[in-house]
Every structure is written in C-alpha cells, then in structure tokens.
C-alpha cells in the first residue's frame, strides 16, 4: 500500500524532516508511528498525501508513483486516503451530517447514495443523535469520531491518522482506537502516528519508531518502548 525507497526530506535551510527512509506497508496492515515531536512523523504523513515533495527518493502510494503524479491528479490520490488529524479539521459551519456528506459530494456521489451512506457511517461512529449538531457543539472525542467518519465514508484503501488522540482524554481515546481497529478489519490499511504510550502497548501492532528523521525500530506486535522481551534478554 505504501512504499518509501530511500526517501529524504530536508526543509530549508538544512532541517532534517526525514532521512534515508525506507519503508513498506502491506495492504491491510495496522501500523503505529511513534517517536518524539520533530522526529518526522508528520513529515511522513504529509509526504504520503503529497502535501510535501521529497528531496530525494521514491514514494509509491496505492500503486501510484507520487513523483510522477501530476498536480491535477492529486485530489484523486487523496480520495483514496482517509485523513484524521489531531485538530479534527472539520468544516466549522457545517453540521456533523454535512461534514461527512462533503467527502461524498467531492467525489461526485449522487444524492440518493449520500442519503444512504451518511447515516450508515454516522451510526457506526455512534453519533446518530448528534447528526445535526455543529462541530463546536459537541465534545472533542465526538468531533474526532466525526472526522473518522468523514475519512472512512468513501471506504478508502488507506487511512492516515496524525495524533488522533492528541486532543482527547484517555478513556475516549480507547473508544477511538477501537473504531480504527474496526476500520482496519474491513481491509483498510491504517497508519497512526502517536505519542500515546498506553495505546500502543495495548494494541500490540507493528510499531515503527522514528528519531531525528530516521527509522530506529520496526517491530511487529511491538510496544511503544523497546519490547520487554528484548529488555529481559539483555539482562
């Protein structure tokens, strides 16, 4: 689903975003990106969305080579990628229902299928009774569920989440992660960048640790820190 080959991103004048990064995410996988702020997690996500261009290297997303992808085709790439952000990025003047429907309007779905699909997904994230609320009228956790609903309503093959639990409390975070897991079970590849230690440890999924723009660890069924087994082994 995602292939990075020796990708580097150097910001002007010489700040390293990502350095010599090689990465492969197969279809249907659930991956955590962990690491301190400034380690390159967000750079990575922006590169996948072609919001940024790599300084060096090759990126393939859903079979498309991003360096040869024409600008006018970028919207079509993004329709294959659901996005969830720390700050939710909901349209402030639209209701929950309209925010979710917008993603469908963009791809040109007809009225009837919008009326069918939106309630379906709004129910799935458990917001049926808030469908007509505006984003500022609901809690942070609920807003994040709306943004997950919007990201997933098109059933994209890939879902990216950048610090999705960064602005919500721990208990709500668990519910959100469970939601992402359910989405993953439908076959969608999910990449979550996070600081959330408990979350990562509980999930036991593939963990990629970044530091200063380099991958320092790639562990399947891993935890936030080095795995206890390795720590024990070192004793």
């Amino acid at each position: 689903m995602i292939v990075f080959e020796n990708v580097s991103k150097i910001y002007e004048p010489d700040v390293v975003g990502l350095q010599d990064f090689t990465w492969h995410v197969p279809k249907g996988e659930f991956v955590f990106l962990v690491g301190p702020s400034g380690s390159g997690k967000t750079t990575l996500i922006k590169l996948v969305l072609k919001e940024l261009e790599p300084t060096e290297g090759r990126i393939l997303v859903a079979g498309r080579n991003l360096s040869t992808l024409r600008r006018s085709k970028v919207p079509f790439l993004r329709r294959n990628i659901g996005c969830v952000f720390q700050d939710f990025k909901l349209l402030p003047n639209k209701t929950v229902w309209e925010n979710v429907a917008y993603a469908l309007e963009v791809v040109g779905e007809n009225r009837r299928s919008i009326r069918r699909k939106v309630p379906e997904i709004v129910n799935l994230v458990g917001l049926a009774d808030k469908a007509n609320s505006l984003p500022h009228e609901i809690s942070g956790g609920e807003q994040q569920r709306v943004s997950v609903a919007r990201a997933f309503v098109n059933h994209p093959p890939l879902l990216l989440a950048d610090e999705p639990t960064g602005n919500i409390d721990p208990e709500t975070s668990i519910g959100l992660m469970q939601l992402l897991m359910r989405i993953n079970r439908t076959g969608t590849t999910v990449v979550v960048a996070t600081h959330d230690r408990d979350m990562v440890n509980r999930m036991k999924r593939r963990v990629i640790q970044l530091e200063g723009g380099r991958m320092v660890r790639d562990e399947h069924r891993g935890s936030y820190d080095e795995s206890p087994a390795e720590v024990t082994g070192a004793d």
């Binding site: 006018s72 919207p75 996005c83 993603a103 963009v106």
Partner: peptide, 9 residues
Amino acid sequence: IMRLVGATN
C-alpha cells in the same frame, strides 16, 4: 480542509 478531503480545484 476541502483540499485534504480530495476536492478538485
């Protein structure tokens, strides 16, 4: 946001 959701120009 519209651009991130994949809206064309």
